[in-house]
């Protein structure tokens, strides 16, 4: 479904990604792991198009989208929920969700999509008229995910959805990732919660200083000695 082929990305003079390649199969949950600063956000920002590549190509559903503008990628079903959520603080929860289905294709399904996300995240139903800026961190994260779902994504990219949340909420977020998968959405999950992420992943990539170090099925990586030492503290 997504095929990233040897991409390089630079911030000015500084090269951050080197020859990163990854593939995502339809229907899977794929994790992108790695320590802070290893280039995860840079990678997903290139996938959504907000960062330009200096080398390499990105294919989505068999189409080369390397030069396609970010908002057009959304229309093709490639949707990213950014690190830090970026909800619209002075818009209400409902308005935020409506903005998720701003594009024509998604707008036609607005009502059904609203029903779906309210079922996935019942708390949002109670908060529909409230301004997004007044929600708690966990609620904002749910809103950000729900807003992304309103775009009818084929591939949903979540950049550290559990960042800064209490453990019980982190649990909730991981559960909702699985429920979204069961709705037929493919997921690319960026995480620092390595064990939990691997637990729900069909496949995972580990970034190390801007290059893919390890990769493999989630269960295999859970038992990998290198991973155990570096990320699981065993």
């Amino acid at each position: 479904m997504l095929d990233i082929n040897k991409i390089d990305v630079c911030y000015g003079e500084i090269q951050v990604l080197r020859q990163v390649s990854l593939k995502i199969q339809e229907g899977q949950v794929v994790s992108l792991l790695g320590s802070n600063g290893s280039g995860k956000t840079t990678t997903v920002n290139s996938i959504s198009g907000v960062l330009p590549l200096t080398q390499g190509t990105i294919e989505f559903m068999g189409e080369d989208i390397t030069k396609v503008e970010p908002h057009v990628r959304v229309g093709k079903g490639l949707v990213q929920i950014p690190e830090g959520r970026c909800v619209f603080p002075s818009l209400t929860v409902k308005e935020n969700l409506e903005m998720g289905s701003y594009l024509k294709g998604a707008k036609a399904f607005r009502r059904e999509s609203l029903d779906l996300v309210m079922t996935l995240f019942p708390i949002l139903r109670e908060r529909t008229g409230q301004r997004a800026g007044t929600l708690s961190g966990g609620e904002q994260q749910m809103l950000a995910i729900a807003r992304g779902l309103m775009s009818k994504p084929k591939l949903l990219i979540l950049d550290e959805p559990s960042l800064g949340l209490a453990p019980i909420l982190v649990e909730d977020i991981f559960k909702s990732v699985l429920r979204i998968k069961s709705e037929g959405v493919t997921i690319l999950l960026v995480e620092q919660n390595v064990p939990q992420a691997l637990g729900i992943s069909d496949y995972a990539y580990v970034l190390e200083e801007g290059s893919v170090g390890l990769s493999g099925p989630g269960k295999d990586l859970l038992n990998n000695a290198h991973i155990k030492k570096l990320y699981l503290g065993l």
Binding site: S48, H71, V79, I81, C86, Y102, G148, S151
Partner: peptide, 8 residues
Amino acid sequence: RGALLMGI
């Protein structure tokens, strides 16, 4: 940025 990522 949030708007751009919603297809706006």
